[in-house]
Design a protein around this nucleic acid. Structure first.
Length: 914
RNA sequence: GCGAGGGUGGCUGAGCGGCCAAAGGCGGCGGGCUUAAGACCCGCUCCCGAAGGGGUCCAGGGGUUCGAAUCCCCUCCCUCGCACCA
């Protein structure tokens, strides 16, 4: 795999280089050529089938990236996403886990139709070619997937199961046909689910076109049946980011409250929903949404109301003022007071929130207050702050502004003095209401008036109504695509006309297709048994392999995809297709954005985009992967940096070169050298162990940048090691091998190349992850060395020593360590030390030191004198090298008294001679 | 408005009760290696200091503690999500 040994290449450069500057390509010739090694190793992995996971694997680590939409292009966001999962999967694999790391294609959707229109082809061919191209790009990045498990949602063998599941849902009573006012995207010419409408401006999630509303009959999945569990279970999803859980909570919008009926004479009882039943005595008017049935009824008799209702229906969202509304002339009876309060129809009351009707309490609700003020409705206070509240009840002027906090009841008849909380509980019974929980979540409208999706397997019969297509006739395949302005399925006459499965009469197929999010709601189950022909997935295996252990993808799916997938999983468990799996994704990571070099979001208009293709061509996949992983922790955003890319590339080249130099004998080695050399080797060996321990922990915690930082430090140490002395071959090679292994999940191609170069058998991808504990005392030791080096620097600098010749370090005597040990645990340090018989011998000295420690308030942990000395011995070379001076490390008893007496635990005495 | 997450040195960013003047990277400065360049290596990069010392410091203010960048409260600012939600 590796080409020419480095030496030959080097000499060829030397021959041709002469005095002129080496070109970039010359430099590259000294290291590896990524265009050569990357495809070669990709082929080697494929041949060895290393990413394949057998069906009989038991509970493998399931590492999953959100599958891409088949746009045809891999962008940096994808590269980051897939680098993270690939690195983690490779890490787990090297640790001996069986790993399920599959890939597939979210391949239905409108863009394919648009592309087909533009290119005079059809969505299928277009999509299939996109898939081929994206698979190729993923492979070039070196991502290791089990391609035998590849799935594509546009494949009839896949979407037949969307249909089959739709019918199962139907049988379970989870499919409903509802007429509703729906979000219509005029550009996509289809309806959208609420989740697919974004922001205040109400834009289509795909094309950013402002949404219109349309009244249509639609197929809905009853996700609201699961609202409670979807909401409550979020608390236990501890492996999920808080913001995603919070977004889902927001979206589901659980509200605990109560409903109470108000009588409107002539119109019967009207249910209201409220979270503030405690304020019922303060209700001074009653308000109906324009869409409320009673409002409609009143409109029939009252022209003014009719006019308002009509206007409200026609008006756009924000067109009407918040105080707009009309008095109906009717009165409602407040069940608490028995009083009649005027009934208004007001646009600020929303039809689909609560019951679409409410009693208004201007004194304790901001919107009601505003409305009451505008309409000259009385404002009656019924709650005042509790005594321990921050606000003085005297300061509250409810004519000026509503007091919306909980408090104590006033003006509420016999209930005065109850707290808000008590009143809410009490009033439910008192006024014949009931506890009620409302959710914001609406049912999931899945009908789309588009071609490139899963046909909804229903047939419309004049006599039988909507009839499901019999299971044996699935899949209902898409007909040939035709170019048309409307829905191509509507135009497919032959396809559309069928006989009714129930009565055999002439009937027509449902021409709407399913929301593409149906396909992504269970694809993670299909990977378990992708070819299965008689069920969507193998239930037993899925129950064993699920949930997904690590799921990584963009935050844009926080509500839509992730909520739908949770919903599907729960339903599938309830219909026994799964066994006890209630949640699909145990741990979730949302990778941050990759910004352009200017710190802004990459975009065509800014021209700050970086194409993965170009980076692979120029620097190779490993460089791109390493740069991305070093740049930031997965969930953080970072800006692309040419400098960073080059740095990653240089590092890989340097490590490779170091390995080659070692292998070709350019690194001078000697077995069992001097004592000094042995000490240095031991230092290096301990650092190797420490690096393994910390890098492993960082990989586990998804802090790849920290792991990689540790690897860089190790490699830097190895370089210094070989510079300062003849190296111990075993230690040095262990260092190289360790660094290579720790790097393997991120830079797998270069890793294999080095692995091979060092003469190892087999593939690195299948090698065993190193295991080591942080050497005992390593942290204290590192601190000691760093402090000491810094002190030496400080002294040389402050004193202005030109050329230090001899540095003597003396460890503190054993009794000082003992004083510190006693002091650490003592309440009263000085007495504790002086009462210690052993320490009494040191009299004044011990007392003085004890006083000093007592003054610090806290005594740190220290190494014992022996271990301090040993640690300094091992690290002496670093000091010698830095200051170009001889270094002597002495035990207290071997050092001159005046020196030794200056030493403290963790702080050797330092003498520097010029 | 409600909710979540944040505000750390020239920048980026770790730390989240003592070992913190605060990791790493970038940038800047000086030095080594080299015919030279790159790469690599060694320092410095808040202020004062002729032996490891002292001062100030982690958005602002207050508090808890022997001790706070780290915990609590208030204020200001940023980012994200939801929002005429009864």
């Amino acid at each position: 795999m590796a080409s020419i040994p480095r030496r030959e290449r080097y000499s060829s450069v030397a021959l041709s280089g002469g005095a002129k500057m080496a070109t970039e390509s010359d430099q590259r010739d000294r290291g590896f050529d990524h265009t050569e090694i990357e495809p070669a190793w990709q082929e080697a992995w494929a041949e060895a089938d290393v990413f394949r996971i057998p069906d009989d694997a038991e509970d493998p680590a399931y590492v999953l990236a959100m599958f891409p939409y088949t746009s045809g292009n891999l962008h940096m966001g994808h590269v980051r996403n897939y680098t993270i999962t690939d690195a983690f999967a490779r890490f787990e694999r090297m640790r001996g886990e069986e790993v399920l790391h599959p890939m597939g294609w979210d391949s239905f959707g409108l863009p394919a139709e648009n592309a087909a229109e533009e290119r005079d082809t059809n969505p299928r061919d277009w999509t299939l070619s996109c898939i081929d191209s994206m698979r190729e790009q993923l492979t070039r990045m070196g991502f290791g997937y089990d391609w035998e498990r590849e799935v594509a949602t546009c494949d009839p063998d896949y979407y037949r199961w969307n249909q089959w599941l739709f019918e199962r849902f139907h049988e379970e009573g989870l499919v409903e046909r509802q007429g509703a006012e729906l979000n219509w995207c005029p550009s996509c010419e289809t309806v959208l689910a609420d989740e697919q409408v974004e922001g205040e401006d109400e834009l289509c999630w795909r094309c950013d076109t402002p949404i219109e509303t349309r009244e249509m009959d639609q197929w809905f999945l009853s996700i609201t049946d699961y609202a409670e569990e979807l909401y409550e279970a979020l608390d236990d999803l501890e492996g999920w980011p808080n913001n995603v859980r919070e977004m889902q909570r927001n979206w589901i919008g659980k509200q605990e409250g109560a409903s109470v009926a108000f009588e409107i004479p002539g119109y019967g009882e009207v249910d209201i929903f409220t979270t503030r039943l405690d304020t019922i005595y303060g209700a001074t008017y009653f308000s109906l949404a324009p869409g409320h049935p009673v409002a409609q009824e009143i409109a029939e008799k009252n022209d003014e109301v009719a006019e308002y209702v009509e206007m409200a229906a026609a008006a756009d969202e924000d067109e009407l003022d918040v105080t707009s509304g009309v008095f109906t002339g009717e009165y409602a009876i407040n069940p608490a007071t028995g009083e009649e309060i005027p009934v208004y129809v007001a646009d600020y009351v929303l039809t689909d929130i609560g019951t679409g009707a409410l009693y208004a309490v201007p004194a304790h609700d901001d919107r009601d207050h505003e409305f009451a003020t505008a309409h000259d409705i009385p404002i009656q206070q019924v709650v005042e702050p509790t005594e321990d509240a921050d606000i003085d009840p005297e300061e509250i002027d409810i004519q000026e502004a509503a007091y919306t906090e909980d408090g104590v009841l006033v003006n509420s008849g016999e209930f005065d003095g109850l707290t808000s909380e008590e009143a809410r509980e009490r009033f439910v019974e008192e006024f014949d209401g009931e506890h009620r929980t409302e959710y914001n979540l609406r049912d999931w409208g899945i009908s789309r008036q588009r071609y490139w999706g899963t046909p909804i397997p229903m047939v419309w019969c004049d006599d039988c109504g909507a009839v499901p297509v019999p299971e044996e006739d699935l899949p209902v395949e898409l007909p040939e695509f035709v170019h048309t302005t409307g829905n191509p399925l509507d135009a497919a006459e032959d396809w559309k006309h069928v006989s009714c499965p129930e009565c055999g009469a002439d009937a027509v197929r449902e021409t709407d297709t399913m929301d593409t999010f149906i396909g992504s709601s269970w694809y993670f189950l299909r990977y378990v048994s992708p070819g299965l022909e008689d069920a969507p997935f193998d239930s037993e295996r899925a129950s064993d392999w699920m949930p997904v252990d690590q799921y990584v993808g963009g935050i844009e799916h926080a509500v839509m995809h992730l909520l739908y997938a949770r919903f599907f999983t729960k339903v599938l468990d309830d219909v026994d297709l799964l066994d006890g799996i209630r949640e699909p994704f145990e741990n979730l990571t949302n990778q941050g954005m990759v910004l352009g070099e200017d710190g802004n979001k990459m975009s065509k208009s800014r021209g700050n985009g970086v194409s993965p293709q170009r980076i692979i061509d120029e620097y190779g996949a490993d460089t791109a992967r390493l740069f991305i992983m070093e740049a930031a922790q997965p969930e953080k955003e970072f800006a692309w940096s040419g400098e960073g890319v080059r740095s990653a590339h240089d590092f890989l080249q340097n490590l490779y070169t170091l390995a080659v130099e070692y292998e070709t004998g350019e690194v001078t080695t000697a077995d069992g050298g001097s004592d000094d050399d042995a000490a240095i080797a031991e230092y290096v060996a301990r650092e190797i162990e420490a690096t393994v321990a910390s890098a492993t922990a960082e990989y586990e915690d998804f802090r790849f940048n920290h792991a990689l930082q540790a690897v860089r430090e190790l490699v830097s140490l190895l370089r210094r090691y070989r510079e300062v002395t003849v190296v111990d071959p075993e230690t040095f090679e262990d260092g190289l091998v360790t660094a290579t292994k720790l790097l393997a999940p991120v830079a797998p191609h270069v890793g294999e190349e080095i692995w091979d170069e060092l003469g190892n058998d087999g593939l690195l991808v299948e090698a065993v992850w190193p295991v080591a504990e942080t050497p005992e005392g390593h942290i204290l030791e590192r601190r000691l060395i760093e402090d000491t080096r810094e002190d030496v620097r400080d002294i040389i600098e402050t004193v202005g020593i030109e050329d230090p010749a001899e540095i003597t370090l003396a460890v503190a005597s054993a009794w000082k360590h003992q004083v510190a040990d006693v002091a650490r645990d003592a309440e009263n340090v000085v007495p504790a030390v002086m009462q210690n018989e052993e320490l009494q011998r040191y009299g004044e000295e011990a007392a003085d030191y004890a006083k000093e420690l007592a003054g610090r308030g806290h005594v740190e942990e220290f190494l014992s004198p022996d271990r301090e000395q040993a640690a300094l011995d091992r690290a002496a070379w670093l000091i010698e090298r830095e200051f170009d001076a001889d270094v002597t490390v002495l035990a207290a008893e071997d050092a001159p008294d005046d020196l030794a007496s200056k030493a403290e635990p963790g702080r050797p005495a330092i003498d520097i001679a010029e």
